[in-house]
Protein backbone atom coordinates (compact mmCIF):
# COMPACT_ATOMS: atom_id res chain seq x y z
CA UNK A 1 0.00 0.00 0.00
CA UNK A 2 1.56 3.31 -1.01
CA UNK A 3 0.72 6.91 -1.61
CA UNK A 4 1.50 7.45 -5.30
CA UNK A 5 4.41 9.84 -5.68
CA UNK A 6 6.41 10.59 -8.82
CA UNK A 7 9.49 11.81 -6.94
CA UNK A 8 9.11 10.39 -3.47
CA UNK A 9 10.71 12.36 -0.67
CA UNK A 10 10.06 9.52 1.76
CA UNK A 11 10.10 5.81 0.98
CA UNK A 12 9.49 3.14 3.60
CA UNK A 13 10.08 -0.39 2.36
CA UNK A 14 8.90 -3.21 4.65
CA UNK A 15 10.01 -1.29 7.73
CA UNK A 16 9.59 -3.08 11.05
CA UNK A 17 10.54 -2.68 14.66
CA UNK A 18 10.39 -5.26 17.42
CA UNK A 19 9.95 -4.53 21.12
CA UNK A 20 9.87 -7.16 23.87
CA UNK A 21 9.54 -9.92 21.28
CA UNK A 22 6.54 -8.29 19.59
CA UNK A 23 6.46 -6.40 16.30
CA UNK A 24 5.28 -2.89 17.21
CA UNK A 25 5.72 -1.81 13.58
CA UNK A 26 5.35 -4.61 11.06
CA UNK A 27 6.43 -4.36 7.41
CA UNK A 28 5.21 -0.85 6.75
CA UNK A 29 5.63 0.19 3.12
CA UNK A 30 4.84 3.76 2.19
CA UNK A 31 5.84 6.56 -0.17
CA UNK A 32 5.33 10.27 0.17
CA UNK A 33 6.04 12.90 -2.48
CA UNK A 34 6.99 16.56 -2.32
CA UNK A 35 4.06 18.75 -1.32
CA UNK A 36 1.97 15.85 -0.03
CA UNK A 37 0.55 15.80 3.48
CA UNK A 38 0.03 12.35 4.98
CA UNK A 39 -1.92 11.80 8.17
CA UNK A 40 -0.80 8.76 10.14
CA UNK A 41 -3.76 7.55 12.16
CA UNK A 42 -4.28 4.78 14.66
CA UNK A 43 -5.40 4.04 18.18
CA UNK A 44 -2.97 4.33 21.11
CA UNK A 45 -0.15 1.81 20.74
CA UNK A 46 -0.77 1.33 17.03
CA UNK A 47 2.88 2.15 16.26
CA UNK A 48 2.53 5.73 14.98
CA UNK A 49 5.20 7.35 17.16
CA UNK A 50 7.58 4.41 16.64
CA UNK A 51 7.17 4.71 12.87
CA UNK A 52 7.85 8.44 13.00
CA UNK A 53 10.85 7.96 15.31
CA UNK A 54 12.32 5.53 12.77
CA UNK A 55 11.73 7.97 9.91
CA UNK A 56 13.65 10.75 11.71
CA UNK A 57 16.47 8.41 12.71
CA UNK A 58 15.83 8.47 16.45
CA UNK A 59 15.12 4.72 16.34
CA UNK A 60 16.74 2.08 14.19
CA UNK A 61 14.43 -0.24 12.24
CA UNK A 62 14.90 -3.96 12.85
CA UNK A 63 13.91 -4.65 9.25
CA UNK A 64 13.32 -2.84 5.98
CA UNK A 65 14.79 0.34 4.53
CA UNK A 66 13.97 4.02 4.85
CA UNK A 67 14.98 6.41 2.07
CA UNK A 68 14.64 10.16 2.33
CA UNK A 69 15.32 12.30 -0.73
CA UNK A 70 16.59 9.16 -2.42
CA UNK A 71 19.23 8.53 0.25
CA UNK A 72 19.25 5.48 2.49
CA UNK A 73 18.90 6.48 6.15
CA UNK A 74 21.18 3.66 7.31
CA UNK A 75 23.89 4.22 4.71
CA UNK A 76 23.93 8.04 4.85
CA UNK A 77 22.54 8.83 8.29
CA UNK A 78 23.96 12.34 8.66
CA UNK A 79 23.06 13.65 5.19
CA UNK A 80 19.59 12.09 5.37
CA UNK A 81 18.73 13.55 8.76
CA UNK A 82 19.58 17.02 7.47
CA UNK A 83 16.57 16.69 5.17
CA UNK A 84 14.16 16.07 8.04
CA UNK A 85 12.52 18.34 10.60
CA UNK A 86 10.89 16.63 13.59
CA UNK A 87 8.36 17.77 16.14
CA UNK A 88 8.31 14.99 18.79
CA UNK A 89 5.14 14.14 20.69
CA UNK A 90 6.28 15.53 24.06
CA UNK A 91 7.84 18.65 22.53
CA UNK A 92 11.07 18.30 24.53
CA UNK A 93 12.96 21.49 25.37
CA UNK A 94 15.87 22.56 27.56
CA UNK A 95 13.98 24.42 30.29
CA UNK A 96 16.92 26.61 31.28
CA UNK A 97 17.41 28.03 27.76
CA UNK A 98 15.43 30.83 26.14
CA UNK A 99 13.44 30.45 22.95
CA UNK A 100 16.18 32.33 21.01
CA UNK A 101 18.88 30.07 22.48
CA UNK A 102 16.92 26.99 21.39
CA UNK A 103 16.79 28.24 17.82
CA UNK A 104 20.48 29.16 17.85
CA UNK A 105 21.40 25.71 19.19
CA UNK A 106 19.25 23.81 16.71
CA UNK A 107 20.55 25.99 13.88
CA UNK A 108 24.18 25.34 14.82
CA UNK A 109 23.51 21.61 15.07
CA UNK A 110 22.11 21.81 11.53
CA UNK A 111 25.19 23.65 10.30
CA UNK A 112 23.75 27.19 10.12
CA UNK A 113 26.04 30.09 11.10
CA UNK A 114 26.05 33.89 11.43
CA UNK A 115 23.49 35.91 9.48
CA UNK A 116 21.99 32.78 7.88
CA UNK A 117 21.30 31.43 11.36
CA UNK A 118 19.72 34.69 12.54
CA UNK A 119 17.58 35.02 9.39
CA UNK A 120 16.42 31.39 9.60
CA UNK A 121 15.65 31.83 13.33
CA UNK A 122 13.59 34.96 12.71
CA UNK A 123 11.66 33.31 9.88
CA UNK A 124 10.97 30.15 11.92
CA UNK A 125 9.85 32.20 14.94
CA UNK A 126 7.49 34.24 12.76
CA UNK A 127 6.11 31.07 11.16
CA UNK A 128 5.42 29.54 14.58
CA UNK A 129 4.01 32.81 15.98
CA UNK A 130 6.70 32.97 18.66
CA UNK A 131 8.47 36.24 17.82
CA UNK A 132 7.32 38.06 20.95
CA UNK A 133 8.40 35.13 23.16
CA UNK A 134 12.00 35.17 21.87
CA UNK A 135 13.57 35.92 25.27
CA UNK A 136 11.20 33.72 27.34
CA UNK A 137 12.73 30.72 29.13
CA UNK A 138 11.50 27.46 27.60
CA UNK A 139 10.75 26.15 31.10
CA UNK A 140 8.22 28.96 31.53
CA UNK A 141 6.33 28.15 28.32
CA UNK A 142 2.95 26.45 28.25
CA UNK A 143 2.60 23.07 26.52
CA UNK A 144 1.17 24.74 23.43
CA UNK A 145 4.00 27.29 23.33
CA UNK A 146 6.53 24.47 23.65
CA UNK A 147 4.86 22.73 20.71
CA UNK A 148 5.24 25.91 18.68
CA UNK A 149 8.88 26.32 19.77
CA UNK A 150 9.68 22.76 18.69
CA UNK A 151 7.88 23.40 15.40
CA UNK A 152 10.04 26.50 14.86
CA UNK A 153 13.18 24.43 15.59
CA UNK A 154 11.99 21.75 13.15
CA UNK A 155 11.44 24.32 10.40
CA UNK A 156 14.71 26.17 10.94
CA UNK A 157 16.75 24.42 8.24
CA UNK A 158 13.88 24.27 5.68
CA UNK A 159 13.57 20.48 5.66
CA UNK A 160 12.32 18.56 2.63
CA UNK A 161 10.33 16.31 4.99
CA UNK A 162 8.54 17.55 8.07
CA UNK A 163 7.54 14.93 10.64
CA UNK A 164 4.95 16.02 13.20
CA UNK A 165 3.99 13.75 16.09
CA UNK A 166 0.66 14.90 17.55
CA UNK A 167 1.36 18.52 16.59
CA UNK A 168 -1.92 19.90 17.94
CA UNK A 169 -1.22 18.66 21.51
CA UNK A 170 -1.92 21.51 23.93
CA UNK A 171 -2.63 24.07 21.21
CA UNK A 172 -5.52 26.48 21.68
CA UNK A 173 -8.01 26.75 18.75
CA UNK A 174 -6.32 29.89 17.40
CA UNK A 175 -2.88 28.31 17.25
CA UNK A 176 -4.30 24.98 16.06
CA UNK A 177 -5.81 26.83 13.10
CA UNK A 178 -2.51 28.64 12.55
CA UNK A 179 -0.70 25.29 12.58
CA UNK A 180 -3.03 23.91 9.90
CA UNK A 181 -2.35 27.00 7.80
CA UNK A 182 1.41 26.58 8.30
CA UNK A 183 1.22 22.95 7.19
CA UNK A 184 -0.74 23.90 4.06
CA UNK A 185 1.72 26.70 3.25
CA UNK A 186 4.69 24.36 3.68
CA UNK A 187 3.06 21.74 1.46
CA UNK A 188 2.37 24.34 -1.23
CA UNK A 189 6.08 25.21 -1.05
CA UNK A 190 6.98 21.58 -1.80
CA UNK A 191 7.64 20.24 1.72
CA UNK A 192 6.40 16.71 2.30
CA UNK A 193 4.61 16.49 5.65
CA UNK A 194 3.75 13.40 7.66
CA UNK A 195 1.79 13.89 10.84
CA UNK A 196 0.36 11.54 13.40
CA UNK A 197 -2.84 12.48 15.13
CA UNK A 198 -5.75 11.10 17.11
CA UNK A 199 -8.02 13.79 15.73
CA UNK A 200 -9.79 12.67 12.57
CA UNK A 201 -11.06 16.22 12.01
CA UNK A 202 -7.48 17.46 11.96
CA UNK A 203 -6.54 14.79 9.42
CA UNK A 204 -9.40 15.66 7.09
CA UNK A 205 -8.66 19.39 7.45
CA UNK A 206 -4.98 19.33 6.48
CA UNK A 207 -4.06 15.98 4.94
CA UNK A 208 -4.45 14.93 1.34
CA UNK A 209 -3.69 11.30 2.22
CA UNK A 210 -4.13 9.13 5.28
CA UNK A 211 -2.49 5.93 6.45
CA UNK A 212 -4.09 3.92 9.24
CA UNK A 213 -1.92 1.74 11.44
CA UNK A 214 -3.37 -0.99 13.62
CA UNK A 215 -1.26 -3.22 15.87
CA UNK A 216 1.83 -2.16 13.97
CA UNK A 217 0.53 -3.03 10.51
CA UNK A 218 -0.56 -0.62 7.83
CA UNK A 219 -4.25 -1.40 7.21
CA UNK A 220 -5.27 1.45 4.95
CA UNK A 221 -3.61 4.07 2.77
CA UNK A 222 -5.43 6.39 0.48
CA UNK A 223 -6.32 9.88 -0.62
CA UNK A 224 -9.04 11.69 1.26
CA UNK A 225 -11.43 14.26 -0.11
CA UNK A 226 -11.23 17.51 1.86
CA UNK A 227 -13.83 17.58 4.58
CA UNK A 228 -14.94 13.97 4.06
CA UNK A 229 -14.68 13.12 7.70
CA UNK A 230 -17.58 10.66 7.74
CA UNK A 231 -15.90 8.27 5.28
CA UNK A 232 -12.64 8.48 7.17
CA UNK A 233 -14.42 7.83 10.48
CA UNK A 234 -16.10 4.70 9.05
CA UNK A 235 -12.78 3.33 7.83
CA UNK A 236 -10.96 4.25 11.02
CA UNK A 237 -13.49 2.70 13.42
CA UNK A 238 -13.86 -0.42 11.30
CA UNK A 239 -10.09 -0.94 11.44
CA UNK A 240 -9.86 -0.01 15.12
CA UNK A 241 -12.60 -2.47 16.09
CA UNK A 242 -12.13 -5.28 13.60
CA UNK A 243 -8.52 -4.88 12.54
CA UNK A 244 -9.32 -4.70 8.81
CA UNK A 245 -10.61 -1.94 6.54
CA UNK A 246 -14.19 -2.19 5.21
CA UNK A 247 -13.08 -3.00 1.65
CA UNK A 248 -10.99 -5.94 2.81
CA UNK A 249 -13.80 -7.22 5.04
CA UNK A 250 -16.28 -7.01 2.17
CA UNK A 251 -13.95 -8.99 -0.07
Amino acid sequence: MTVAAANPVLQLDHVGRRRAGRMVVDEVTLELGAGQVLGLLGVNGAGKSTTLAMIVGALQPDMGTIRIGGKDLTEEPIATRQLVGWLPERAPVWPELTVAEHLATHGRLRGLRGTALRAAGDAALAQAGMTELRQRLAGALSQGQRQRLCLACALLHRPALLVLDEPANGLDPVHAAALKQTIRTLAQGGTAVILSTHLLAEATAVCDHVAILHEGRLRHVGAIAAGDQAALERTFFEIAMHGANPAARAA
Binding site: G57, A58, P77, I78, V84, P88, P92, R110
Partner: peptide, 8 residues
Protein backbone atom coordinates in the same frame (compact mmCIF):
# COMPACT_ATOMS: atom_id res chain seq x y z
CA UNK B 1 16.40 11.70 20.79
CA UNK B 2 16.15 15.17 19.23
CA UNK B 3 19.95 15.50 19.23
CA UNK B 4 20.36 12.07 17.64
CA UNK B 5 17.69 12.87 15.06
CA UNK B 6 19.48 16.14 14.23
CA UNK B 7 22.28 14.08 12.75
CA UNK B 8 24.78 14.64 15.58
Amino acid sequence: AVLLASGV
